[in-house]
Amino acid sequence: MRNGIVISAVIHVTALWVSFVGVPEWMRSDPEIIEQAVIVELVTISEETRAARPKPEKVKEDKPPPSPREKPEPPPVAEAPPPVPVEPEVEVAVVVPDVKPLPAQKKPVAKPKRKPKPPTRKTAKRSPDAPQKAKSKKYKFDPDRIAALIDKTPRKQATQESPETLQVQPKITSRTAQPLEGQPLTLSEVDALRAQIERCWIVQAGARYAEDLVVTLRVFLNPDGSLRSEPKVVEGDRLAADPFFRAAAESAIRAVLKCEPFKMPVTKYDRWREIELTFDPREMLG
């Protein structure tokens, strides 16, 4: 009797799990093999490996990104002035009789972030201002923006899908009627994304300890290729401690913000909804 219950429970749990997560990779045979045939063809294009290794422990970070958690990142920026005021203080003593940073300086720093909202009431009369301000904060949670995304998604699906996926599709559909969902990105798709970001990344030449300034960002994307939330710096605790790292991280973030939305095949959204970008200037600066 007990055995029956245990076996039944195990089978139920397994069935539930399979229905939620799907069959494990080692149990699927055909699609992956077909996929590899495509990859082999494309190997000459780039040296990059075709798919990322699974990292289960990091999966949980997938969900938190929406704006409320991203907001804490700006404060280090507000705290930035301390190193600077040191110089003016030296000056107070000798050169410019009264030159000194405002002690109340942190308040003005914080104000602009809070202020903008009330002022929008005033500026609301000027119609062009209001919508622009709303747009400027893309990665903050904004119901209007979500609505806009829903509108865009179908259109972008149609346009974006075609150039990237057309080359690959014929080969796959010849063997399987399945769409591309769940398939890894091809090397050319990854290369296209890489090229798009590289065009936007301004690397500072002559920075000290450039070899230590490797920045990894975790980027969360919407199906239309736009950012779902602000990029997250993986070694975030270094931002406050190391001004060089902070400058490098901000430069990497600017590259991502400038380049979005990214042109990616929407059918493989599962593969690129979350991307880890490692900005490494060593090769360039030698």
């Binding site: 749990v13 799990w17 799907g22 990322a52 990292k55 999966v59 890489r194 991307i275 880890e276 900005f279």
Partner: peptide, 29 residues
């Protein structure tokens, strides 16, 4: 059973994070 499930879970590709190295940028002001 749980151990088997967790191993299978680790092997599931849908949860992988795409990793890309950006090694070239623009040296512009």
């Amino acid at each position: 059973c749980l151990a088997a499930m967790s191993i299978a879970l680790a092997a599931t590709p849908a949860l992988a994070v795409l990793k890309i190295d950006i090694t070239q940028g623009v040296v512009d002001p």
